[in-house]
């Protein structure tokens, strides 16, 4: 009698290592954290992982004004920081593109802020914006612009401004580099044809350069929106969400709930609720990306 060996399709065998790796490093942690969001799991009481409490955590989040304020603040930070970074990055890329000598050096220098760890950037700006010994207040007082100690990291608006400033300082170059890559890829013919037809520089930029750059801008926006929606390090160091929750963002709140309060079940539920934000912005920017590629005549 002949045993029938189990024959798996070749394509499946070839994909199996990738499937196993994906399952173990992505799917299992995701399922486990999703499961724990339906439990009162506390890090200090491991037995709570096995107690099912249904949608309790999600109901609690839905009615928690502090969570939704943090959600709103994260959307606000995302909107302002992304737009500023995009505009500044576009400006820098256009300027660097005009440079004919030493452009490589400029591109390298431009990338310096990206090389810093966000924690280091947080400490750097925490010191710069310190109300008592910080550089900004000392400069303002020495120049006679104010005789007050401006509470940069305490006042609600100023603290948000300081955080946005640090974010923009660190990440504008992401936009600049990607947009510069786009500028290098623009074909010369349409621009030269526009010049022959008597277009002004603004008209060339508005109707030729910008539409060509839009796919690059949307890719940068999609990447950075995921980054900013997860903003944690800089805010944690600069204000830790305070004072009085004035700069509390989703991930400073989730980090505190999960690790300081040890309420990992609730923190995971908050994490899943906040994924809505990342999914929304990613879908939005990818749709925009597809639309702009279609308008340029590229197939998706």
């Amino acid at each position: 009698m002949k045993l029938l060996p189990l024959r798996l399709p070749t394509w499946f065998l070839l994909l199996l290592p990738a499937i196993i790796i994906l399952l173990s490093v992505v799917l299992i942690p995701l399922v486990l954290s999703l499961y724990s969001s339906f439990t009162p799991y506390k890090l200090t009481r491991p037995e709570t992982l096995y107690k099912w409490i249904g949608e309790y955590n999600y109901v609690k989040i839905a009615g928690d004004a502090n969570f939704w304020w943090a959600f709103g603040r994260t959307v606000f930070l995302l909107t302002i920081a992304l737009n500023l970074e995009m505009l500044l990055g576009l400006g820098i890329a256009l300027l660097v593109n005009k440079v004919t000598w030493g452009q490589r050096w400029l591109r390298t220098i431009m990338m310096f802020p990206m090389m810093f760890s966000p924690i280091l950037v947080g400490f750097q700006f925490k010191f710069i914006f310190n109300d008592n010994v910080g550089l900004v207040n000392n400069a303002l007082q020495s120049l006679g612009i104010t005789d007050q100690a401006l509470p940069w990291l305490v006042d609600g608006k100023l603290a948000m401004f300081s955080i946005i400033f640090a974010e923009v300082w660190m990440s504008t170059s992401v936009f600049a580099i990607l947009i510069l890559a786009g500028l290098f890829a623009i074909p010369r013919d349409p621009l030269e044809a526009a010049k022959v037809d008597g277009c002004t520089p603004w008209q060339s930029f508005r109707h030729i350069t910008l539409p060509f750059l839009m796919p690059f801008i949307y890719i940068a926006l999609a990447i950075r929106s995921l980054d900013v929606a997860r903003a944690y390090d800089i805010v944690k160091i600069m204000t830790n969400g305070g004072p009085a929750r004035r700069t509390e963002l989703l991930w400073t709140m989730i980090g505190r709930t999960g690790y300081v309060d040890a309420k990992m079940g609730l923190a995971n539920a908050m994490g899943y609720a906040s994924i809505i934000l990342a999914v929304f912005f990613t879908v939005y920017f990818f749709r925009k990306l597809s639309a702009s590629r279609s308008s340029l005549g590229f197939d998706n």
């Binding site: 305070g242 004072p243 009085a244 509390e248 300081v260 309060d261 040890a262």
Partner: peptide, 17 residues
Amino acid sequence: WIEATNVIYPELQAAIL
């Protein structure tokens, strides 16, 4: 205690500010 301090301190700050 630590969990309680995390809900008390933002309120103390809110009054102070």
